[in-house]
Nucleic acid binder design. Structure first.
Lengths: 153, 153
DNA sequence: CCGGAATAGTTGACGCGTCACCCAACGTTC
DNA sequence: GAACGTTGGGTGACGCGTCAACTATTCCGG
């Protein structure tokens, strides 16, 4: 009754291990650089970018969570830490007393503006400057396919 | 004196956001599945695989850290948790009294063998079954290039 | 209007990863 | 063989993410 599993062949192995290594190193490197030259984590940065994309208007917490594809609980914890550091603030929502608005503080906006150029430069340097435009297209194809499969379950 | 940063163009943006989304979702999905049907985290699994690859011989902690590309401190914390659960054991090293050997316990070996087939199946299902062999080649090309750039600094 | 289901968001506990720091053993040099 | 720097590894504090449980509000059927 033993189902022999279909293992990965040599190319697939190589691609998979390469992917795992790349993703770990890339994330670690970008994180360390952002932390070093702006004092922000990647997660902080994502939150700040999502808020600035909304043009400084208050954003409902739930909406922010959906934008980031984060669980509400994660967002709540993270906002608490960012609020402690003065990067964002929470306001209560008049329409729905259960709700909460999140806004960027001046310090938060400054931090985002200070961090962005170096972060983009790092992404360029480590990723896109090394890829041909065919490789970029291929990457889009792969990520779209995998995401579709994950979503499709 | 303002250096205008070179932003990402539309294709690059799309590739980058797609990559970030894919990597987050893929990791989360694989992690949840492994946790659900084997009670292991991805990190646990990596440790167990590294140890079984060494054929059951004790492995020096530092060597294991190098294999996994983990910091020693991370490995130390993780081994402590795995030891508590009976998956691995530490032995002291006769050659070098500072050193520590790590070995798989019987339970650890069983857990790895039980977890592997479903995990490989998930990787296949979510990734490789959806990709053409050209896409796999392209993925290898991209990961190799990016890793080289990270290493090269 | 009342009572229960759904919704918005928070909290606590716990596993995980990093950083900074520590300690013990080693080995080299004089 | 004593002193010194190095190496192997562990620790504690803290930020992060998840899960489960909780609170407060709103919505809806009767």
């Amino acid at each position: 009754m033993e189902e022999e599993p279909r293992w990965l062949d040599a190319r697939e192995q190589r691609a998979w291990r390469g992917y795992l290594a790349m993703q770990a190193q890339l994330q670690a490197t970008l994180h360390r650089r952002l932390q070093a030259d702006a004092g922000l984590s990647l997660a902080d940065f994502d939150v700040l970018v999502a808020l600035t994309d909304r043009g400084g208007e208050p954003v409902r917490a739930g909406e922010l969570a959906a934008l980031l594809q984060w669980e509400k609980s994660r967002l709540s914890h993270h906002l608490a830490r960012m609020e402690r550091r003065g990067l964002v603030a929470r306001e209560d929502c008049p329409d729905d007393a259960r709700g909460a608005f999140v806004v960027l503080t001046a310090a938060g906006r400054r931090a985002q503006e200070a961090a962005a150029p170096a972060h983009v430069a790092a992404v360029r340097e480590l990723v896109f400057d090394g890829l041909t435009s065919e490789q970029v297209d291929a990457l889009i194809g792969v990520t779209d396919e995998v995401r579709a499969r994950i979503a499709g379950r």
